[in-house]
Design a protein around this nucleic acid. Structure first.
Length: 259
DNA sequence: ATGGTAGACCTTCTA
């Protein structure tokens, strides 16, 4: 089972790029973030014609997540529990009915900049809601993959220039602590299993020649339950995708589980 | 100290 995550920064502006990578990467499951459209505007047809079932949790202009699956899906959850006033479309979960069922979530954590504002407070509160929900899901003792754009640089090794991120919401001690609290529930970052070296980044800003200078960060993760970690086969970070025509600022990350 | 880019969409916000 090949499970990929990709923040595409508008699925409609990026459609040709996304389809070109799908044809290369051949994911069984593709979790998208920042689709930036409402459900009705999601370009489902080209994915359906490639054999994917399409789940969308969108909103106008901002955010929006989707799950594309070659296998049937069940037990779909739209939105993260714990705050009825939260209208951001940042969480979508479903069970993928593959040869071994796996519960997958497509996650777009709030950016949280600038620090010291309600945006940063919202990020930390959202993180805590995710921790609580993940604790509930772990009780199911299933294969579980929580993947997406976490908008956190967990460790200095996850940035080419960590000093440039001091004071940014992605590298704040509270953000890093919230990520650790999530993993300490018993989730494993697939990167830790996969043997990809330090300097394996998933995001390079469009600005200031970040890509040309390799000023990248690693902020897109697959967090695995013990049952999923036991089935881990490999991880591939598709760095080349940052050089495609009309690239996203993120690249796809693909985890393979056995079978 | 600033600005640099990209997308949605209408004017500025988000990242």
């Amino acid at each position: 089972m090949r499970i990929a995550t990709w923040n595409v920064n508008s699925v409609n502006a990026r459609l040709e790029t996304v389809l070109a990578w799908v044809d290369q990467g051949q994911p069984d499951v593709l979790c998208l973030q920042e689709i930036k459209c409402v459900d009705e505007k999601f370009p489902a047809e080209p994915f359906e014609s490639r054999g994917y079932n399409v789940l969308v949790h969108g909103q106008k202009s901002y955010n929006g997540v989707a799950i594309l699956s070659k296998f049937p899906v069940s037990d779909v959850r739209r939105g993260l529990p714990g705050d009825d006033t939260d209208e951001h479309a940042r969480y979508l979960e479903a069970v993928i009915e593959g040869p071994e069922p796996v519960r997958v979530a497509s996650i777009y954590l709030p950016n949280g900049n600038p620090i010291g504002t309600e945006k940063f407070a919202f990020k930390l509160a959202w993180f805590e809601r995710l921790r609580r929900h993940a604790a509930e899901l772990l009780k199911l003792e299933e294969r579980l993959v929580l993947c997406g754009d976490y908008n956190v640089i967990p460790e200095p090794a996850d940035a080419k220039r960590p000093e440039a991120w001091v004071g940014d919401a992605l590298f704040q001690p509270e953000s890093r602590a919230a990520f650790r609290a999530l993993t300490w529930l018993g989730l494993t970052d697939a990167h830790e299993l996969g043997g990809e070296p330090d300097g394996t980044f998933t995001f390079w800003d469009y600005q200031a020649g970040a890509w040309q200078r390799d000023h990248g960060i690693r902020i897109d993760f697959h967090l695995l339950s013990p049952q999923a970690a036991d089935a881990f086969r490999g991880i591939e970070t598709w760095r080349d995708a940052r050089d495609m025509d009309k690239p996203s600022d993120h690249v796809p990350v693909l985890v393979t589980l056995d079978p």
